[in-house]
Design a protein around this nucleic acid. Structure first.
Lengths: 229, 229
DNA sequence: CAACTTTGCGTATGAAGTACGCTAATTAGC
DNA sequence: GCTAATTAGCGTACTTCATACGCAAAGTTG
């Protein structure tokens, strides 16, 4: 993690009335950067490109954001500025399922965020609000906080890893298993070949692995919770 | 994914006898790059630095590797050149647990690999060998291939996400939850505060979340497998 | 209106990846 | 052996980025 990242995320932005009023704002910069990344990936977010989009000079950005790495962290935390993904249900299982599916949607909508999430960083205020929120909700419907913390972490971790094969859509999935197009490869990897087997997939398609994994995790948690009773 | 990445990973390296014999080799370049990344992170791997370490000119590297992005993909696949993490046991649960813990060890030993793993890429031959190997092993001990494929994918996904909080060691973990040092933050996020509660953590420390999550997944799979019988 | 404060931003610097083309080293064929 | 073909090594130059620095612009306070 970069030095200063913590202050950046958690430090207050005291804004004295004196001096020239800002034309730019951190919020606008971050929002525009997110829009660029959503459209073309993190690689498309350069200070130059960003400044052009905002109609400002490149160096003006540095009055509002310490540097690019810090900007990326702010971008990530800004994704969780809205309300938590939280179903109405009063059952812990539904709450956790909704949470997991919500995280998945987040990453599917902002594929670049996965690489940020899995980098070395500190938790931002919005993310903290989300996580604290689910744990609290789980506690409210009867799941002890300790267990809730671990359960949320488990679902979170799975969701981060689990969306990865889904990111990029169909073309990407094909690229990942592209080598299975070669008969020699299918012979070399007979079990993996199942993925590419046309006689198998359409008739009895593999379950979606994300939903499969999530349900397995919920099942596993259920066993643990029942055992505690 | 970059164009040409597929050919890079899966294409043969026909080496005709004619011409000047190579002093460098792809293997040596990749191995040295991995060593640099292990020691100082991916950011330390620059073509210049790498060439210096190998005692060659910068542009010589491009005779063996198309570019830096491709080099990183080769680095990642090279991590799985060795034998699979595979316990002796004949029970699917032990096999899967060993697999999950093995993946975890891999990422802990090579923290930079997590960001590569979660990027858009194609599967390399070594990785394919590993994955095909576990599925085959699971099939050999009685788990149907379809279920094995999903199970491995689930454990894999969880492992990728699950090692993330562990990467970087204690200092990093503290940095991630650093905001909890502020009493105001602990009041704002009462449930998360539990993580930083000294009266709670030492006496009854939270279970390791990786092992917790892995066991929950295995429990969930067990329920599913028993239901099928 | 003068002193002060804060923002906007042009210029310059340095690091990184890599296209191009020349040179060196080796083999294949005569 | 000699020559042509082939392949590797690599210096130079160019591009793209992030960003340090310093000054000008636009406000506020007294």
């Amino acid at each position: 993690m970069r030095q200063g990242e913590y202050e950046l995320l958690w430090g207050g932005q005291a804004r004295p009335g004196r001096g020239r009023p800002p034309g730019l704002s951190r919020e606008r910069i971050v929002a525009e950067a997110v829009a660029i990344a959503d459209a073309g990936g993190l690689a498309k977010v350069s200070m130059k490109h960003l400044a052009e989009r905002l109609g400002s000079g490149v160096m003006s950005l540095y009055r509002h954001v310490p540097g690019k790495d810090e900007l990326v962290v702010l971008m990530y935390d800004s994704l969780m500025a809205g309300p938590l993904p939280m179903p109405e249900s009063d059952h812990w299982r539904e709450v956790l399922r909704g949470w997991g599916l919500g995280i998945r949607e987040l990453f599917l909508a902002h594929p670049w965020a996965l690489n940020v999430a899995t980098s070395d960083r500190s938790m931002g205020p919005n993310e903290a609000t989300w996580v604290d929120g689910v744990i609290g909700r789980l506690a409210a419907v009867g799941l002890p906080v300790d267990l809730g913390l671990l359960a949320v972490l488990t679902v979170d971790c799975f969701a981060m890893g689990g969306v990865w094969p889904e990111i990029g859509g169909a073309e990407s999935g094909e690229a990942f298993f592209r080598f299975l197009g070669d008969p020699a490869a299918r012979e070399r990897f007979p079990h993996l070949a199942r993925v590419a087997d046309p006689a198998f997939t359409p008739d009895a398609p593999l379950e979606n692995h994300f939903e499969f994994g999530l349900e397995r995790i919920l099942d596993g948690l259920e066993r643990r919770i029942e055992a505690k009773d």
